[in-house]
């Protein structure tokens, strides 16, 4: 059983860890959450080992545990993000990328996905969490509002701000791909 569980973990550990890390944006916390998810999975391993929905179950548990973790340890985040209504996000330091022309050249050679990942993790939690839940976890706006206990309007605004922040941080390349001249 132990060997079977190790194989099971090897198959799913990256998926669970990615889900947690993209939500909490802290590798140590994501590792703790991943460990808890697999400890939970071990208790139900008899059901999970042959289940075709094991991946979905693990992903849902990882997502819920990450959100619980955020609400438990960062309850102040939503409160102060409501109070500041976005000024904190604007105050947040920009990621230090080189100037756009050089960036274009670098992106042509460097790992673009790594830059996207880095930019995503540097977004403020009030923007990153709903963005990840919408685009990566596939939740609807209403589900996100319910899960984060914030208004539907705030979810939409935060997601829009997050997309804008990513567009700015990823520089010209994204704009070119979109055929956009927008600088709002």
């Amino acid at each position: 059983m132990t060997e079977q569980f190790e194989t099971f973990m090897r198959n799913y550990q990256n998926m669970v860890y990615s889900t947690a890390l993209r939500l909490v944006a802290n590798s140590a916390e994501a590792e703790d959450i991943t460990q808890e998810v697999f400890l939970k999975a071990y208790e139900r391993f008899a059901e999970l080992k042959d289940s075709p929905t094991a991946g979905g179950w693990l992903r849902t548990v990882a997502r819920n545990m990450s959100l619980n973790h955020l609400s438990r340890y960062r309850a102040r985040w939503s409160f102060f993000s409501e109070l500041t209504s976005g000024s904190q996000e604007e105050d947040a330091p920009e990621i230090e990328f080189s100037a756009p022309p050089q960036l274009d050249e670098e992106l042509a050679h460097a790992d673009h996905k790594l830059l996207v990942e880095e930019a995503l993790q540097k977004l403020p939690p009030a923007q990153r969490v709903p963005l990840v839940l919408y685009h990566i976890e596939g939740l609807k706006y209403e589900e996100i509002a319910g899960r984060l206990k914030v208004s539907l309007g705030k979810v939409k605004t935060d997601i829009f701000r997050a997309r804008e922040a990513l567009r700015k941080k990823l520089g010209a390349r994204l704009g070119e791909e979109m055929g956009l001249e927008h600088n709002a």
Partner: peptide
């Protein structure tokens, strides 16, 4: 565009 970028992200390797 953002959806395409984020969905294309590969899984992050666990420690």
């Amino acid at each position: 565009e953002i959806d395409r970028e984020l969905k294309a992200l590969p899984e992050i390797a666990a420690p």
